[in-house]
Simulated scan of single mutants.
Amino acid sequence: MTTAYTLNNKKSQIGDVDSSNSTGPFAYGSGHVDPERAADPGLIYNIAAEDYLKYLCSLNYTSDEIALFAGGHFTCPKNTAIRAGDLNYPSFAVNFRGGVQNGSLEYKRTVTNVGTPTTSYALQVEVPNGVSVIVKP
């Protein structure tokens, strides 16, 4: 996800063959896979299969349905609600239902450097008008 590219061979945004509408991340996902960059991503966002299974519990999948993904029996933990934004992904989307004013959300991400130990990285945030983002650290 962090090493994919979103421009085509003409240096234009990836297009949607089935539509004349402009595209965006909800149309093409993370972009095209770049195998060389994927082999040496620099930073990774660790996530375990159990995290996905717990998320399915939050979506009210039954134990039998989750067992199909788990490859065997899986019991959902009690009182655990995981939102999509809680999964350790390099991106997330926020739904502003009903024009929420002055609302706030907090998301946490954990990254691991698997690249050169002394490398520094720059954060990129795309923020829509009327929204502010604070990143710590």
Rank of each mutant, 00 (worst) to 15 (best):
A39C: 04
H73Y: 04
D18Y: 15
T119Q: 08
P25M: 01
A70V: 01
L123E: 07
Y121G: 08
D86E: 13
I134L: 04
L53M: 06
L59T: 05
D34W: 06
L43T: 03
A67T: 03
P117A: 13
Y121N: 06
A38C: 02
R83T: 04
G99T: 03
N129H: 03
I82K: 12
G115Y: 01
S91N: 11
T23W: 10
A93I: 11
L123S: 08
G29S: 09
C76T: 05
L53T: 00
V125Q: 15
Y5C: 10
V111P: 04
G115T: 04
G130A: 08
M1R: 08
N129C: 02
N8H: 11
L56H: 09
S12P: 00
T110Y: 04
K136N: 10
F92T: 05
V111A: 13
S63H: 15
G31D: 05
P117C: 07
P128N: 05
S58Y: 10
T2W: 06
L59R: 07
G130Q: 02
H32R: 12
G98P: 01
S58N: 15
A27H: 14
P137G: 13
Q124K: 08
P90Q: 07
S12Q: 11
S19E: 11
C57R: 10
G72Q: 09
R37H: 05
N9P: 01
T116Q: 13
A93S: 15
A48E: 02
T118M: 09
V33T: 10
S63V: 09
V127H: 06
V33W: 08
T80R: 07
A39D: 04
P128E: 01
R109V: 13
Q124L: 07
E126I: 12
N46V: 00
Y52W: 11
I134S: 06
G15C: 02
E65L: 01
P137C: 06
G15T: 12
P128M: 02
T118K: 14
V127I: 15
C57H: 08
N113M: 00
I66F: 00
P77A: 10
L87F: 04
I44R: 05
N129A: 15
A70E: 03
A4F: 14
V131A: 12
V127D: 06
S132K: 13
L59G: 01
T2K: 12
Y28W: 05
L56E: 14
G42R: 07
I47F: 11
F92A: 05
P77M: 11
A27K: 14
T80M: 05
P35K: 14
